[in-house]
Amino acid sequence: MISDITLGQFFPGNSPLHRLDPRCKIILSVLFIVAIFIADTPIAFAFLFLVTLFLIIISRISAKVIFKGIKPIIFVVVFTSLLNVFLTVGKGAPLVEFYFIKIYTEGIVRAIFMSLRVILLIIGTSMFLTYTTSPITLTDGIESLLSPLKVIKLPVHAFAMMMSIALRFIPTLVEETEKIMNAQKSRGADFSSGGIIKRAKALIPILVPLFVSSFKRADELAVAMECRCYRGDINRTKLVKLEYKIRDFIWIFVFALILSATILTKFLPDMITRASEVLDILFYHI
């Protein structure tokens, strides 16, 4: 049934990842994303792969769930990998040559990096955000992180409030959709046969009443909120206060190190050659 839809795939739990401050997790995701896009050596990828593996293990989220999360993007990954393999023109002689198809080593390497990048990106960010952070704390985190933008008059509070109300009403609207569908079905509407166009057309009599009632709900909710003294974030306190703990700083520090390590791997081959040159010169002189 459609009511089984879970909000953003959040898995309640009490792992070290669950306990982190949402703002910290957003920052960690950004650091991780930057690291992934900077990485372009096998060492860097191996390193980030281990980091991701570590995250999966400590989050105690089953591999099945994670695999399910990657499934929808497998097609994209395979498609872009193939494009990379066939279209990259390398420097040396082609690895395989078959009529007009030429495959170079560079193409294969690039395809592998590309796939790893996308997969690590999805797993890494969902580890921090979707799987271990409830939507509502995520909203709080976003509001708090964006709050400096209030200085330039951006409606950060209104934005966060909109997001949390949207989250609140998803299950209500799903329930309502089911009700309308049943009402239409009981009058002979058919949603489950016919081609895609016919099915899409059958949705119109559901969407129209759904929209109408959403507007009515929005209106009533606005009145109810006003009656509960809501007037934006003027002199407003919050029940749940976000507080950075020492562990949050430790995590951010560690991920900053990971990012720097990834950047360093870029220069690693260069440094090795240069170091050996220096050693050579030294030995030569001795």
């Binding site: 509502i136 949390s164 609140r168 909120m225 509960r228 003294c229 809501y230 007037r231 306190t237 029940l239």
Partner: peptide, 26 residues
């Protein structure tokens, strides 16, 4: 309509909505 008065996704936070607006201490 009870559905159209509740703002938050957790009961406790919904009850807190009014006091939050009034600026009550935690």
């Amino acid at each position: 309509n009870p559905d159209n008065q509740l703002v938050a996704t957790v009961v406790e936070e919904d009850v807190a909505f009014g006091p939050e607006n009034l600026g009550i201490e935690r």
